[in-house]
């Protein structure tokens, strides 16, 4: 990164730390969604952007993480700081099954992507029919008032959740940067670029793909636990839905797949865009159900057509934020 890049990053970080003292609650909740979007985008980006595996079913790990954390807390009294490890374990187990099927039987390219959708759908239908976890009617966490904030049980007010989201997003960025520079990261890039050449250079493609899948799914599950405790309710039709997987991957794609800052840029563009659309359409008197999603869909088509490779590489070039080869 260039000096300008470091300055920009520091300014952005300072602004995000200071935000709760400046902005109102509505804006803060939007920033929170941006941060979570950035966090989940980083998780997906490790798998796709670094290792070249296109998962279109990341809602699977999000949902498994959310349900595991919530069920352990409500039904077994296990707090989320402990439950999050169980959530990661469950997600990694599901990822292992997917990886085993995909890598062992050489299910590659578009077939792998469709397999990820199938796994998420199976989970959605399964949870829809699992009465212990509330079935289709949903699973609820007791809502705590802000006065009874218990940070150790992830019960707290908006500031608490905001800073937690900021920590997650910052942590994911740091982890991504670390991994990208590591031997494992280089092995991922090699496998992404050309698996046969990577193997000829001694890279165990199957093993490093599994690592990418494990790290990505575990990170996504952590995001799931966060969402469960933040929103207090879970519905299979929402958390496991295909549209959730799509939402999750839009930010890194629009921001720039395989880049460190792409997921962040994408999230900070798309989340406010979605919110602004509601206001704009309301102002225009277009508040029919579906109008927002229709315009959103059209905007997606325009953005993806206009910015191949995503926004970040373009921004970084224009503002001279990154050195060569970054």
């Amino acid at each position: 990164m260039t000096t300008r890049g470091w300055v920009a990053l520091s300014l952005a970080a300072a602004a995000l730390v200071a935000a709760p003292f400046v902005v109102d609650r509505y804006l803060l909740s939007i920033l929170l969604l941006c941060l979570i979007g950035a966090y989940l985008g980083q998780a997906w980006n490790i798998l796709m952007g670094f290792c070249g595996l296109l998962s279109l079913g990341h809602a699977l790990y999000l949902g498994l993480g959310a349900y595991t954390g919530a069920i352990l807390f409500v039904k077994f009294g296990v707090g989320p700081w402990l439950g999050v490890f169980a959530a990661m374990a469950v997600a990694v187990a599901a990822a292992s099954a997917l990886g085993w099927l995909g890598f062992r039987f050489r299910i590659e390219g578009v077939y792998f992507s469709l397999l990820t959708i199938a796994f998420a759908e199976v989970a959605r239908i399964g949870f829809d029919n699992w009465s212990f976890a509330g079935g289709a009617a949903g699973f609820f966490l007791p809502v705590a008032s802000e006065a009874q904030a218990q940070w150790f049980n992830l019960r707290g007010g908006p500031y608490f959740f905001y800073y937690l989201a900021l920590a997650l997003a910052a942590g994911a960025l740091a982890l991504s940067a670390f991994l990208r520079a590591s031997k494992l990261g280089h092995a991922w890039l090699a496998v992404r670029e050309d698996p046969a050449a990577a193997r000829a250079l001694g890279v165990n493609a199957t093993r490093v793909r599994f690592f990418a899948l494990f790290i990505s799914s575990a990170m996504t599950a952590v995001g799931g636990v966060y969402l469960a405790f933040w929103s207090n309710n879970l519905f299979p039709a929402q958390i496991f839905d295909m549209s959730r997987s799509i939402d999750l991957i839009l930010a890194p794609i629009v921001g720039g797949v395989g880049t460190l800052f792409g997921p962040i840029v994408g999230a900070f563009l798309l989340v406010p865009l979605g919110e602004a659309l509601i206001d704009i359409l309301r102002a225009l008197g277009l508040n029919a159900p579906g109008a927002k999603a229709l315009v959103y869909g059209a905007l997606l088509m325009i953005i993806i057509a206009a910015t191949p490779n995503g926004l970040w590489p373009w921004i970084a070039r224009k503002l001279k934020l990154e050195g060569r080869g970054a």
Partner: peptide, 30 residues
């Protein structure tokens, strides 16, 4: 292939297979 490479047999490809999006240095560093 990766185990044979580890054992000490390296190979090049007739139809070259660079990692196109990575720098030349990173290609060799891998």
């Amino acid at each position: 292939p990766e185990d044979i490479c580890k054992a000490g047999v390296a190979r090049t490809f007739q139809i070259v297979k660079p990692f196109p999006d990575l720098s030349v240095l990173d290609n060799v560093a891998i």
